[in-house]
């Protein structure tokens, strides 16, 4: 079991190019993600959600504090932490299969084996017949599934999901949430999901983390079991009308809302 840790991590950006003034984006964030957990991070715009993911991925370096995997400080992005982007970031000069095989190609896996593995992963995300399709021929939902298959090809210990379903229509989004849950439960990787949607966070995550803005800090870290219930066959409708779901939903809404009132006052 691996653990991805952020320990009292703060991040400050320069307010603008020419000034010495800095703006604190994240303040003393501590978060541990084990490789059997699914953490969803919610918070309003400007609460530093994406910065948190960029620190975990190694795209950004913390101003203070430590980011580590199993106790070893990370030095930058690496294959053990694969990222799925909101704008899919698939390479348009490669077809769907070659996009999925891309992380394998980087590692020097032979062409035949690469294809085999990519086709397996495409089948896993329900796109077995789309291998030779061009990226621009795929719908938004299909593209995100290719993006998820590509991240899995990297055989990461942690999946970092930067609002991957944010740009999809509501119906596709609901379907992909259940799909993502299933893929995660079968993959034995830790998942860190950044999302705007309280519902999405609750249905997928084993822990829901709430960030408050100015500066970004963790104000709640709540365990959730609705994903487990979904996986064990309970229907979405039954979960949504259960008192515990309503209670947590109200609680989380209150947390995010209370914070914005405080700001308005």
């Amino acid at each position: 079991m691996s653990v991805l840790s952020l320990q009292s991590v703060s991040l400050a950006f320069r307010a603008d190019r020419d000034s010495r003034e800095t703006r604190l984006v994240l303040d003393g964030v501590t978060l541990h993600l084990a490789s059997d957990e699914f953490i969803a991070v919610i918070g309003r715009s400007g609460s530093g959600k994406t910065s948190l993911l960029n620190l975990a991925a190694g795209f950004l370096k913390p101003t203070s504090g430590r980011v580590s995997v199993d106790g070893a400080d990370i030095t930058g992005p690496a294959a053990d932490r694969a990222v799925v982007f909101q704008d899919d970031a698939l390479y348009p000069w490669l077809n769907a299969r070659d996009n999925v095989a891309f992380p394998l190609k980087l590692r020097g896996v032979a062409k035949g084996e690469r294809r085999l593995r990519a086709d397996e992963l495409l089948a896993k995300v329900g796109l077995e017949s789309a291998g030779t399709k061009n990226i621009w021929e795929l719908s938004g939902g299909m593209r995100q599934r290719v993006g998820i298959a590509r991240a899995l090809a990297s055989e990461p210990r942690f999946l970092l999901l930067d609002e991957p379903l944010g740009a999809l229509d509501a119906l596709t989004r609901t379907r992909l949430q259940q799909f993502l849950l299933k893929v995660w439960s079968e993959s034995k990787t830790g998942a860190l999901l950044i999302t705007h949607s309280i519902e999405e966070a609750m249905l997928l995550a084993t822990r829901v983390v709430v960030l408050a803005p100015n500066p970004g800090r963790i104000i709640a870290d709540i365990p959730a079991s609705f994903g487990k219930q979904l996986l064990s066959g309970k229907s979405l409708q039954d979960i949504k009308i259960s008192p515990e779901y309503r209670r947590l939903h109200d609680g989380l809404t209150g947390l995010i809302h209370a914070d914005s009132e405080e700001e308005a006052a």
Partner: peptide, 26 residues
């Protein structure tokens, strides 16, 4: 070249040379 294209390759463990040849050049 979009920043996400380069960041994606980095998160899959690409070296600088691999990023240049397989992401930036295309």
């Amino acid at each position: 070249a979009p920043a996400d294209f380069i960041n994606a390759a980095r998160s899959f463990g690409a070296t600088r040379l691999q990023i240049l040849a397989q992401v930036i050049l295309p």
